[in-house]
Amino acid sequence: MKRHMKIIVAVLLAALAWAGCKKEHPVDEDGLLITNRAECYVSDFDLWGADHQTVRTKNPTIDTVACTINIEVFFGTDLRNLYPRFSLVTDAKLDPKIAGKTDFSDLANPRQYTVVSGNRQVRKTYTVLVSVQQ
């Protein structure tokens, strides 16, 4: 019996040591995984109204070179209470984070969001240009 116990303990210790030596994946200040991806762009963008329904009249025009997003919203959209929704390339994140309703009513000073790549080395600032259906 003693011999069996010794074997079991040895196996457990080996497993523990193996798990303990495993290399940890790096994470950023938000606890998100930092990867090797350097891609940095917005793939889709939408705006939701207070009723959580889209207010865009058609697909937005996203210029990944000029870093602009042109989006047209329905006539009668309440621009002060909109929920922006970004789709980003894999592993990228957004700065500032979207915390909820956002005011897009100041059309002369469009809102800007920075996309940060998966490796956290590339940052691109996109400007959201909202126009109302006329």
């Binding site: 009249t57 329905f74 006539f75 009668g76 259906q133 006329q134």
Partner: peptide, 20 residues
């Protein structure tokens, strides 16, 4: 149903912008 605009059924305050 103005041409080119999505308006349809609406509830608007009397003091709202006349465009509504």
């Amino acid at each position: 149903t103005p041409a080119g605009l999505t308006f349809n059924h609406a509830l608007v305050a009397p003091a709202a912008d006349p465009q509504y």
